[in-house]
Design a binder for these strands. Sequence first.
DNA 1: CGTCATTCTGTCAGTCAATGACAAGTGTCG
DNA 2: CGACACTTGTCATTGACTGACAGAATGACG
Lengths: 205, 205
Amino acid sequence: MDTVGLRQRKKQRTREALIEAAVALFCANGYDATTVDQIAEAVEVSPRTFFRYFTSKQDIALSLADEQITAMLTAFEAQPAGLPVLTAMRQAVVEVVRAAAASAPHGRMRDLVSGSPALTAARFERGSARLDEVARLVGARMGVDQATDPRPRLMAAVALCAVPTAVDAWRSAGRDEPDADLVEQAFDLLAAGLDYPAAEISEPR
Amino acid sequence: MDTVGLRQRKKQRTREALIEAAVALFCANGYDATTVDQIAEAVEVSPRTFFRYFTSKQDIALSLADEQITAMLTAFEAQPAGLPVLTAMRQAVVEVVRAAAASAPHGRMRDLVSGSPALTAARFERGSARLDEVARLVGARMGVDQATDPRPRLMAAVALCAVPTAVDAWRSAGRDEPDADLVEQAFDLLAAGLDYPAAEISEPR
DNA sequence: CGTCATTCTGTCAGTCAATGACAAGTGTCG
DNA sequence: CGACACTTGTCATTGACTGACAGAATGACG
């Protein structure tokens, strides 16, 4: 096989160089102001080649986010078997977020993604695309069939969509705590249930 | 004032004609295969004018989704004051989804949106954009300050992101029930809490 | 009614993302 | 080395979107 062929190594290096250049340019000039041509030029490949490595400009911006979902899946599987599912999910997400906070490129990209509506939207697209994968693991851990039981998919939707959205919303509302803490809090609230009572006292008129 | 000026009425008519033409073309040929030029031509305006009414092609596709969020907010406010917040939210969403199911253009657009990843992502963008609005109403109903209490925003994120995502996932997994029923189920599950236990019996090896 | 300012629209030119087709270069393997 | 597959660059094209400018429609007012 060609596991370590020169050709493969070259491709891998090009791919990494493209990501590195893209992240640098995005951080320096912003996502929208960075053109594919600039990224390609920084790595000295043709713009056409860029699109042979990444299907779109969004694609490269979200390659890191993609890795995070994969990492989250791995972490989720690694959780002790007896753990309640939501707890296992929380641990997995927190682990990944902690690791990302310590990594410079991930940290910079997080701000970029939450700063650009287009990227925020694209991140959801990624999440939705991998929702089945997450649901499958959740179902396995619960010992139910994710094809017939709706709960695994619902939990996947919550983990992939509601939690990041809530964290983003909290951040933009001025909460400066580390992401991991906000994630913990989101899961705590979800575990406690959302069935809040209405205000008891009728407002003064 | 110019509340009913000829100019205003004309603009309104153009806007509606554009939406109508866009929906028709999207349904006939699909979202991606429909060009802005085609939409503009169908209404006999210049393509440039299209972008003076809608900021993007996605924008016009989601104008209906936008109306639904607004309708949901109205319905939420109209719920009886004593209702638990999650129940009120569920009623509001169900009402809107029911109404949409009865409306031909909304129904067709729903399939279009869930069929196109780009539109699904864009719908989230819309949702996130209005998350604060929703959170404010939720906070008001709970009698808490949405600036300091994280729960309203979390619930808004769940209602705007997790529920639609779960419903989409269920549909694509083959569940054919009416959307309203799926929404009810999602909220029921959320009200019951997500803290599912792990499977008790270790799998055979 | 005529004039002027405002607002809306069309035309034009241009940028950028993305894709198909073809040719030329580079790695792989017998 | 030489046939072959894979990768890349060049070229051309489409489609979304924007800025600038000119001209037409509209509304306000004397």
